[in-house]
């Protein structure tokens, strides 16, 4: 902040210095709850879980031993459930997130044509993203995709005989993916806000140049929205890796049938809180953290090739 600093009487300067010191104290007072929370609830636990991951901690510190990298070695070499859960979770994230984003984008673009009833559509599309992780919706999903569920009733109208999609290992994960895609409303609203920011002159100029709709989408809409695609992509990816309630409820906490919905978080929960392998689960927690960090870093590194910010050119 520019302030006249020349020719100040010396006592005034002393007062100004102390006012800056006072502002620091006040700043830390305002920040005190956050600092306590950051140290005790976030930073401390993250370091503690790293330390625990090198132990065989199972609830009692007296009998705890350091085991070095044993937990990590066991995880990567002999825990088949770990690899299974990694596969299931990756399939879930890398199938559902792109579909979710494409759906959100397509609906946002359709809504952005100045149609009537925009508010009603937006409400209907957005609502599922608020309740999609609730137990009630997971309960509902069991009966939508169950053997005598809604989907099969509808199929029966067309003379098709269905089966229990929740109970079949080939389709169980698919139902959870559908549940995630069902919550496309949140990124859609963000895309919708982004579409409003694109200057209409760009489209006018393109139309004059004879650009067709898909060319306009490819050369104007998509580049303009790329920061939001990036943002929604990172958030949906991080959220996807942490999906828990849906699979816990749909599979009764087992990850079945045949491990087809054994998500990483569910396995971590089982190891930690039903088998009390807290040291091992801490190692799993750190692997999850590193995976999310690595994929987020890849997103950021790749951003310069496909994310365009308006102020660049």
């Amino acid at each position: 902040m520019p302030r006249p600093t020349t020719k100040m009487p010396s006592h005034a300067r002393r007062i100004r210095l102390s006012s800056r010191a006072r502002e620091s104290i006040i700043g830390y007072l305002f920040l005190a709850p956050w600092i306590v929370g950051f140290v005790l609830i976030t930073l401390g636990p993250i370091l503690a879980s790293l330390a625990l991951s090198f132990t065989d901690f199972s609830g009692s510190f007296d009998r705890m031993r350091w085991v070095g990298f044993d937990n990590y070695i066991r995880m990567f070499t002999s825990d088949r459930a770990f690899w299974g859960s990694l596969k299931v979770t990756s399939q879930y994230v890398f199938i559902s997130v792109p579909i979710l984003l494409m759906f959100a984008l397509a609906v946002a673009i359709t809504l952005n044509r100045g149609l009537s009833m925009l508010g009603i559509y937006r409400t209907i599309f957005y609502l599922p993203s608020l309740i999609g992780t609730s137990v009630a919706i997971a309960v509902l999903w069991r009966y939508v995709f169950g053997e005598h569920g809604l989907v099969n009733h509808v199929l029966a109208v067309f003379g098709i005989e269905g089966f229990s999609y929740i109970g079949d290992p080939r389709t169980a994960l698919g139902t959870i993916i559908v549940l995630n895609v069902w919550t496309f409303g949140a990124p859609m609203v963000i895309f919708l806000a982004g579409l409003r920011q694109i200057p209409s002159e760009l489209y006018e100029a393109a139309t004059i140049d004879g650009a067709r709709n898909w060319q306009q989408f490819w050369h104007i809409t998509l580049p303009s929205l790329s920061p939001l695609v990036f943002f929604n992509g990172v958030l949906s990816m991080i959220g996807g890796f942490q999906a828990f309630t849906q699979v816990y409820v749909v599979s009764d906490g087992t990850g079945g049938p045949a491990g087809s919905t054994l998500f990483y978080t569910l396995l971590l929960y089982q190891r930690a809180f039903t088998q009390l392998q807290l040291g091992y689960a801490s190692a799993m927690a750190w692997v999850l953290l590193l995976m999310i960090a690595a994929i987020t870093a890849l997103f950021f590194l790749s951003a310069r090739y496909w994310v365009h910010y308006g102020d660049e050119q």
């Binding site: 636990p45 879980s49 991080i238 930690a272 927690a285």
Partner: peptide, 28 residues
């Protein structure tokens, strides 16, 4: 407000948005 380490703390705060809850759960 201006105080020492404001930018560092702000960056740390932003990082915690991305932190998965599961990584903190057991020590908590």
């Amino acid at each position: 407000l201006r105080f020492p380490f404001r930018r560092t703390l702000f960056a740390l705060m932003l990082c915690t948005i991305m932190l998965p809850l599961h990584a903190l759960l057991i020590p908590q």
